[in-house]
Design a protein around this nucleic acid. Structure first.
Lengths: 245, 245
DNA sequence: ACGAAATTAATATCTATACATTATTGATCA
DNA sequence: TGATCAATAATGTATAGATATTAATTTCGT
């Protein structure tokens, strides 16, 4: 349940190197921006040729987990929405791209004891969390209400982060590498709470996005976002992995 | 506008090999299932070492475009929802996963002359298309109405495909490799047409998914799908590219 | 002190070769 | 015929170099 790299350790050397480096990054031991050992160092550490190390590192770079530069060395990449697969989360950029002024207004910010978070039909038992409810505005009018749980076991830094002016979403993206995300997207009718927060009529179609993000086995965050149906739509664009080589 | 590989040909040899092989696959010259030249052949053709060829091919395999097997050789992969990035399209599997009986019922199937297809706010000028309107059912009740255009310049085989029992979506996925897709997702209120087709009240929240798929510069297909909001939601799950090595 | 030039440290690519692994093909034998 | 076993052809991994490219650092000349 908790084994980090116990998924049958890779048989080949370059795969092992890649897995071990990856594990250190995902465990948080090596954090975004940190410098990684050079190929020469790794070559000595593993007692192999540089090409083998290079293959491992190149493949990590191809997935976007690390960023490599000649002479400057290799650093842990700051997570860039994983190969830009899904464009959903950056509300601010989206609002501003339409020429509107972006606004963010936190409504609630509290620590919550371990409890059962409800997501869709299921209940999930998770640890202590910081809970932030906020509205995001375009030109002063609300377009999104967001309930976010950040689990402090997985993201201890979140306890001291300041979410009064920066929303938790971007903060997380900039600080925490993640490995998996799941989105549930649905059309719902605005209930009383949503209607009031988004200033729409009761029953208005809204877009619900529930997003859950993991790093390995650990749940990092769960967000429940309700968008004004008339004001917003999501676009996701994707293609094959870039493969910078 | 139509240049296939004119996007500044890659400087390095393995990147060039990769790009050229990729171009032949995407152009349709090498089709899913076709056998590719062996590493030895490519090595001779490009006058380079096998390792260089191997790097190019391994990277194509990592993105899922080709499939490689020892002794058996390398073949063009049949498109598998590109590294399983997005799980949206397979309605049938989704319906059946809930234990419901899946049903498909085409309403309209016609050839359309080049015209202006409206997608979102924009109009797109595209060539001859086959247009199929259909409803998809779960246990006999409609959950999705789909309008699909397939552009025959890009997918000539679609002219003769039989969509009376198989929906165009799965057919396309199984036959045509694609490189890019864009989804627009929105919450809308059911209009008269949708309300009647989906057997819901006028104004009921529905999920709209507009999907456009490309191969290189060419648009392959545009689909407009409206889901019953109460019956369906979409889930998209993704993580880093598998990287089989 | 400052800017230009040389050095150097890192990754990037490429070669030639060796051996490992695996699935197909073909040969052998009951 | 049919099962088994050996040969073979393809990819997969790894090595030890060589050279190229890039950018940070240091040195040097004014």
């Amino acid at each position: 349940m908790h084994d980090l790299a116990a998924d049958a350790r890779p048989a080949t050397l370059h795969a092992r190197i890649r897995a071990e480096v990856e594990a250190r990054i995902l465990s948080g031991e090596w954090r975004p921006g940190d410098r990684l050992p050079t190929e020469t160092e790794l070559m000595a550490r593993y007692g192999c040729s540089r090409m083998t190390v290079n293959k491992a590192m190149a493949s990590l770079a191809a997935t976007g987990l690390i960023s490599r530069n000649r002479r400057a060395g290799t650093v842990v990449a700051r997570p860039r929405m994983h190969v830009a697969a899904l464009k959903i989360p950056d509300i601010r950029a989206d609002v501003e791209a339409r020429g509107a002024a972006y606004g963010y207004h936190p409504l609630l910010d509290e620590l919550r004891p371990p409890c059962c978070v409800h997501l869709g039909a299921e209940g999930h038992h998770l640890g202590h969390s910081r809970f932030v409810r906020s509205v995001h505005l375009a030109d002063g009018s609300p377009v999104l209400i967001e309930d976010r749980h950040i689990f402090l076991d997985a993201v201890p830094d979140a306890a001291s982060a300041d979410f009064r002016s920066e929303p938790p979403g971007p903060w997380l993206l900039g600080h925490v590498p993640w490995t998996e995300a799941e989105h549930r997207i649905a059309a719902i009718a605005a209930d009383a709470v949503v209607a009031r927060a988004l200033e729409v009529d009761f029953g208005t179609p809204c877009l619900l996005v529930e997003r859950r993000t993991w790093r390995g086995e650990e749940t990092l965050t769960i967000a429940r976002q309700v968008f004004r149906g008339d004001a917003f739509d999501l676009t996701a664009r994707f293609g094959p992995t870039p493969m910078t080589g």
